[in-house]
Design a protein around this nucleic acid. Sequence first.
DNA 1: AAACGCCTTGGGCAAGTGCCCAAATCAAGG
DNA 2: CCTTGATTTGGGCACTTGCCCAAGGCGTTT
Lengths: 195, 195
Amino acid sequence: MGPKSAERGREVRERLLVAAVELIAERGWGGVSTRTVAERAGVGAGLVHYHFGSVQELLSAAAVAAMREVGGSLESLLEQVEDPADALRLMVSSLDDYTGDDAVSMVFTEAYLAATRDAQLRDQVAEVMAEFRARLAGWLGARGVAEPEATAAVVGASIDGLVMQRALDPALTSEVVLPVLVRMVQTPGGARWRS
Amino acid sequence: MGPKSAERGREVRERLLVAAVELIAERGWGGVSTRTVAERAGVGAGLVHYHFGSVQELLSAAAVAAMREVGGSLESLLEQVEDPADALRLMVSSLDDYTGDDAVSMVFTEAYLAATRDAQLRDQVAEVMAEFRARLAGWLGARGVAEPEATAAVVGASIDGLVMQRALDPALTSEVVLPVLVRMVQTPGGARWRS
DNA sequence: AAACGCCTTGGGCAAGTGCCCAAATCAAGG
DNA sequence: CCTTGATTTGGGCACTTGCCCAAGGCGTTT
């Protein structure tokens, strides 16, 4: 076999994943077809079933990869701040960037729903979310926030919900929402963290 | 014409709406077809386009109706309690009843995503949510909760997000989550409402 | 040059899609 | 009885769907 061929194959595989994420956001999970995703990636339709067993497997792989990427960016985000309120500000600030063409935040919601109907996908998504929560909970707990596990779960769920509703109500900016979210990460004594 | 015919027509229309809500939850917005929804309702396939202009219109009408129903139940819920923490407890307690495969909570998320791709649906969903938020915000404001509008928005978004994630993590019970949510509705002085 | 093997293409098939429409149904009014 | 008019049916059309597969391309190895 040729190493050149394998390399090109991996590059095509990557293009299919990117195209899948775009189209999941644009048309919804059920609206992505073999031919549309192949055309977007600029390859023949048959390649979808060559690199991935089925359209469902392509969509699942694309969504999980996108979610893992976001989870990784959380890690570097938490290293930049010390105050929980500042961390929330950075996380929620993505709300304002979200103009509607942000594919990744939409893919999160689509993946949640698709996971409801696919046991294999559910396990993968649950794993990503558990990792996310554990990381955030450890960080919050080290800074005196009460019930760090539950707090991390609610913070994550709140951001997911806010991203969805922001598409319906542009007035729901991070500036409006942040003061309320900050109440969730107040330390029991009422004092805020300082480095 | 026969009044009986019109009456039966309205009954069939209702059955189509119910079937649509069920199928949106089971198969997702894009997975509901003319024939599946007609079969579930026990009628011929042609009736979908007789009572509704298109499948999209049927789905939108069904989702909005289901959402309005939930919004109405919120109103009666707020009349039963006085403490904001108790109100949250009642709202979130539905989390435990909803195992994740609950039709209505799933339809909410599906409707949010579908509204992103249908301007007409977006307006209707936004109206329902605005009404919901206004009602809750007024109730919270009258009880001394700071920034009632933003708080109502975040509470609503949090519950939406929690309902989604609860399908992935059954450990996310109302008992675990409630203490964190209550922090959001604490009155500025730190005192809790008493009747 | 020939053989090998991964990658890629595009056509083909059965099944399903939304929507349309002629024909049937049926209770009320003439 | 016959008409009326809303309701309902089921078949049909053009189209898309997921997936398969024979055929070809191309770098590497022999």
